[in-house]
Design a protein around this nucleic acid. Sequence first.
DNA 1: CGGATTTGACCAGCGC
DNA 2: GCGCTGGTCAAATCCG
Length: 300
Amino acid sequence: MDDKERDDPEATELSAESSWKLGGDSDGAYFFGGSDRESSILSEFGWNFRPDETGFDRIGPDLAGNEEEKLCPESATGSPVVCGGGTAVGSGPGGEASASNPSVSSSSSEDHPEKSTASGVNKPPVETASKVRKKGQKRIRQPRFAFMTRSEVDHLEDGYRWRKYGQKAVKNSPFPRSYYRCTNSKCMVKKRVERSSEDPTIVITTYEGQHCHHTVGFPRGGLISHEAAFTSQLIPSSASQFHYPGVQFPQQNPLSTITQLRQVPGEARESPSLPQPNPPRLPTDEGLLGDMVPPGMRNR
DNA sequence: CGGATTTGACCAGCGC
DNA sequence: GCGCTGGTCAAATCCG
C-alpha cells in the first residue's frame, strides 16, 4: 500500500473530493484538484508538482532518483514518442527495454510469481516465493498517474486488455476499488479503478507502471474513437490529467480540452463544460500522449 | 473448456 | 506490539 495514501488524511479523501476543479496560480500552473488540495492529491498518487518556466506544472512520479527521466528527450522535441519514465519501463514504444531495466525487474517480481503450492485458504505457514521476495526486499513502486473521468462504467476502455485481480473496499468510500493488471504477461502495468465517494459519476483511474507493448487494437481496426470507446468524458474542469510517459490512451481524447487550457493559462480556470469536437486523429501508437501533453509541457 | 471475474484470506507497512 | 488499511493471491465461480 501506499503509505502516503494512507497517512495523508486529505489524500484518503481524494475520492470524496467534491470540488474538483482546474486550479492554477498566477503563473498559469494547472493543478489536479482545487486550491490547497493539490498537494494532498498529488501525495495520494505519490507525485510531485514542479512549476517550470513554461508555467505549466510538471507532473511526475515521486520516485527517488528518477525525476529527470520522467520525460524523455523525444518529448522535449514535441515528438510523439512515448517514452519511459521514472523507474518504469525505460523504453519507447514497444518498451522492450523493460526487461533490461533493473528496477523494473525488481518491481515486476509479483508478475513472475514463482508461486509454490501455497494456496489461499488454509494456507500452510509456508510462504510463497513471491511473499518471500516481498519480505526480503522493499516493494518498489512504479510511477503512477491518475485521472478522473465522468463515466457510467467503472472500467474504461483504454486500448489495453486488463485482468481484474482484486477488489477491495477502501476507507472513506462506499465504493470498492478494483485492481487490474495488464493481460500481457510481460507487461507490469497495473491500474486501480474507483469511484469518487461524493460524486459517483466520477471514476478515478490510477495507472502504475508502463506498458511494454502496443495497444491491442480494436475490431474496427486501429484505434476507436473516443465517443465509441467511452460513454464518458474526462472532467474538463478537473484537469484531471497527468502526463505520464508511456501510458497511452488510444481512444480517449479529451486532449483538445487540455490543450486549450494550457494554451490560455490566464483563462484556464473556466473550463469548457463539454469536450471539444475531436479533430481528426492519426491512429498512432503514441496514444493520447501527444494530445494529452502539449509539446511544450513535455519539454522536460 | 479456457479465460475472466469474484471473493475471502493473507501479507506488508505504517501509526499509535 | 497491535490494529488498521491497501494491495495481492488464488481457489471457486462465472461466462462466452
